[in-house]
Structure formats: C-alpha cells, structure tokens
Design a binder for these strands. Structure first.
Length: 349
DNA sequence: AAAGCGGGGTT
DNA sequence: AACCCAGCTTT
C-alpha cells in the first residue's frame, strides 16, 4: 500500500490543527510577513505578538518605516533582543524604498541582498507572501527533519546542514506552498517540540525514524559540548619526621571553599615563595585529573621533606597535622585520596 | 547553568 | 570557509 506523502500529511494536519489566526496572517501583505519573520528570528510567537502589533500601528507600511529615525524603530524593538535586527530592518526598508519602489522585492536574490534577510527568511517570504516554491530551514524545521530522518550528527555541521537544505527542497509540495511552510513551522512549534513532543498526534508518526528508534527527544543530537577548559595546579606535600603534613585552609568562597588542601601554586614557582623554606624535594607523584562542572583540573603533586626548624609557624591558614588525623578534616576528594595514599605508604617515606 | 536560535561580522 | 557574537527563553 502507498501511504500519502510527507507534504500531504502535513497539509492535512495543518488544515485541522495549524495556526491561522496569527496577527501577520490577517490581510497579510509582504511587508507584514517580512516584519513578522524578522521578529520571529530567535524569538517565540507569544513574545513577538505585542511587539508586532505596536510596530505595524506606528509603521503601517514600508515608507513609514523607511522615513522613521532609527532610534524610533529601536525604541519599539526594545525588549525583543538582537537589536541588529531592528537596525537592519530599518536599513532594508530604506533600500526597498530606494531600489524596489517601496515594495518587498519579489525575487529570492533581491531579498537575500537586503540586510537581515538570509536564506531561510528569504525562503519564508517567497513562500508565504508570494506563493513560490521555496523551502525554509529554521530551528523548528531542523528539529522536525532531524527526527523524521533520525539524523545522528549535530545539524550545525556544515555538511549536515547542506544535506538538510537538499532534503527540505525535495520534500516541498507542488501546490499550497504557503500553507505547507506554515504547517512546518506550526508542527515544530506546537507538537514536535524540543523536550515533550506529542507524537501520538503527529501526522508523521508512521514513518518518523526517531519515533521508531524509541526516544525522539534524542534528536536533534546536541552539539558536542566544547571541551571544558583545563587548568593545571601544583600541590606541595610537605612531610616532616613524625609523619606530619602541612595543610592550608582554602578561602571560604570559590572552589572547595573552607576545605583543607595542600599549599598550591598554579605553575612551578621559586622555592622562596613556598610556605616552607629549605624543604627537600623527594619526588613528584602521578598527576590527578579532577572534573568540575565548568573546568577540568590537572593536579601535579610534589612531595618534600621538611626540617622542623624551617617550618613556618602555624596560623589560621596553615596547620601541621599527623597524617591519620588529617583524614578527619574536611578535605576535597583528591586531597583525601592523596592523604589516604600517604597513610598507606608511611613507612616508605 | 546551559543550550538554542538566523544572520552578520571577523579571521 | 570557519568561527564568534548577540539577548532573551526554555529547560
């Protein structure tokens, strides 16, 4: 049996459940559609609506916008974010006034030359305003497509995005292009949402590969989160004859606030700024890697023996403490790990 | 606290 | 071409 096509099912769903009452869908001119599409970049419908309404009231047509001061445009944009969109909108209106007879140009290449209009926004205007067969590839469409095809690479990858543009192109219907483009946006915005897609109501459930795989929210796959920064630190483990070690209390705020740790230096430092004078270097231990939420720390522990004559006086920040007693203090995990190791190998030192 | 988002600007 | 950025929302 042949099931109906992707676009047929989407259009049938749109007829029943699509959004048809949005402000820019009433008496829609190309100007209204352009304005709404720019406002909808990076911004949700519910946020856009009041801004859109104030905007068209003050600037009901392209000439009103082109003749305005940019500051007046921006004041109506205030709170929407991405203010370059407002500046570009104003610039584009002037360009339309001067070069396109105060109209939104009706061809794709001219649209692309206007500031603030890229490939997806140009496609939306061509389809929604001029009923020409152009695809869009915004965040909603990317999500729907990544699920429909179970694309297992992050869509930000150049080759994936190129393939997706090709895919949205081939899925286009030959009729009802404006409804279809609106349907794609509506499906992504209202049903195929990021975290809680309502697959049971989805017209694409029968051949959605992500649904078939069991968990559609695994798509689109996330950007591999960028490598957390790695910081290096040196820890100085001073031991004196009676198996005492020198610990230092960390500042109350910040990493491991208030816990006891070894004297520390971010890089190799001269002996004379270490807290113990004339200590004798014994050995360096293997590095320890510790992972925090926002960075990785590589710890280089170095063991010194210290003559009690040369030890610094105890104070609020520094204590000499017997190794076994140290284990009863508040210690960061890697400090505890190191001290436990020292405790087990005391005799060898 | 972090990810997502279309287009523009920079390297 | 490949990166970074903008500002607000959602998770």
């Amino acid at each position: 049996m042949t099931s109906s096509t992707f676009s047929d099912r989407l259009l049938a769903w749109y007829d029943q459940h699509g959004r048809k009452d949005l402000p820019w869908q009433q008496n829609a001119s190309a100007y209204h559609i352009w304005l709404s599409e720019v406002m909808l970049q990076q911004t949700q419908v519910a946020t856009v609506i009041p801004y859109y309404q104030r905007f068209i009231e003050k600037f009901p047509h392209i000439d009103a916008l082109a003749d305005a001061q940019v500051d007046d445009v921006l004041s109506l944009w205030s709170g929407l974010g991405y203010y370059a969109r407002g500046r570009n909108l104003h610039k584009a209106a002037i360009q339309m006034q001067q070069q396109h007879n105060s109209q939104v140009p009706e061809d794709f290449q001219s649209l692309l030359r206007l500031p603030g209009i890229g490939r997806s926004t140009a496609g939306a205007i061509m389809a929604l305003a001029f009923h020409q067969r152009f695809p869009i590839l915004d965040g909603n469409v990317k999500r729907v497509l990544a699920r429909y095809d179970a694309i297992n690479i992050w869509p930000g990858e150049k080759h994936v995005e190129t393939a997706m543009w090709q895919r949205v192109e081939e899925l286009l219907p030959s009729t009802r292009i404006a409804n279809y483009i609106q349907a794609q946006m509506d499906l992504g915005a209202t049903l195929c949402t990021r975290s809680r897609p309502d697959c049971q109501r989805c017209p694409l459930i029968t051949d959605c590969q992500a649904y078939a795989s069991g968990d559609p929210t695994l798509f689109p796959v996330r950007k591999t989160k960028k490598q957390q920064p790695v910081r290096q630190t040196n820890w100085y483990i001073y031991i004196h004859q009676d198996n005492h070690i020198l610990l230092e209390q960390r500042p109350q705020s910040g990493i491991w606030g208030g816990l006891w740790s070894f004297p520390e230096a971010a890089a190799q430092v001269a002996d004379n700024i270490l807290p113990v004078k004339n200590a004798v270097f014994q050995s360096s231990m293997p590095e320890i890697k510790h992972v925090f939420s926002h960075f990785k720390l590589t710890i280089h522990p170095h063991i010194f023996t210290a003559d009690p004559i040369n030890i610094v006086a105890e104070n609020n920040q520094h204590i000499w403490v017997k190794i076994d007693k140290a284990l009863t203090l508040g210690l960061p995990a890697p400090v505890k790990q190191l001290i436990e190791f020292l405790s087990s190998t005391e005799r060898m030192l």
